[in-house]
């Protein structure tokens, strides 16, 4: 057994353990902690596959930043220990849960089958295979030469997201005369129109 295999088994098991614990936790904050564990072990898996950049993104953005946001959302909404999470689920929503997870499972089966047992599903037909595909260098080289324009567009997308977040979440500043009068004259009308349908 090589060391690579040992590391793979350890991190794969940790990822599954983290994911399971995340689901079975009663306390949402603890769930988030287990999710971080799962994401970090997944990052190790990606790195073993040679997708170093994705691994780094997973740790820096997902485990680092997005889960902080999750924590804030949980605390902001003041979710307590969710004992009766299932109490409001109707048969339809249960069916939907099974359908969606079943579809995901089928998709996984298909991918595994396609990559190991069946060679008819071909990928990347038009592009030559690069040896270090997925490494930080090769990603960077593409990103800063061929995909230069999308790269700069990304920063504009981030900028719009910044502006949007500030507009939605920030209280109006003092010199802003906006929003002293509530603009809700047609709220009732809106509700009645929806009730009519």
């Amino acid at each position: 057994m090589t060391l690579d295999l040992v590391i793979f088994i350890i991190s794969a098991l940790t990822a599954i353990f983290g994911a399971l614990m995340m689901i079975f936790q009663r306390n949402p904050v603890a769930s988030v902690m287990y999710m971080i564990l799962s994401l970090v072990s997944q990052a190790v898996l990606y790195m073993q596959l040679g997708a170093l950049f994705i691994g780094a993104v997973l740790i820096i953005v997902y485990a680092g930043a997005i889960l902080v946001l999750f924590l804030f959302v949980i605390m902001m909404l003041n979710l307590r220990q969710t004992e009766d999470m299932d109490s409001d689920s109707t048969p339809i929503s249960k069916l939907a849960k099974f359908l969606v997870s079943g579809l995901l499972f089928l998709e996984m089966l298909f991918v595994v089958r396609g990559s190991y047992f069946q060679s008819s599903v071909e990928t990347g037909l038009l592009s030559p295979q690069i040896d270090d595909f997925g490494s930080v260098e090769s990603v960077a080289e593409l990103l800063f030469t061929t995909y230069l324009y999308p790269f700069e567009l990304t920063s504009i997308l981030l900028l719009t997201a910044i502006v949007g977040a500030v507009v939605i979440a920030r209280k109006p500043s003092n010199e802003d005369p906006v929003e002293i009068l509530p603009f809700d004259s047609d709220d009732d009308e809106f509700k009645s129109a929806k009730a009519a349908e």
Partner: peptide, 24 residues
């Protein structure tokens, strides 16, 4: 795709621009 997102993100914000209005 990037163009679509740059178009959409401001649209989401503008739809909810009247922050004190429930419908918005």
């Amino acid at each position: 795709f990037l163009g679509l997102e740059i178009m959409s993100v401001p649209l989401y914000v503008m739809a909810g621009f009247a922050r004190r209005n429930l419908a918005s």
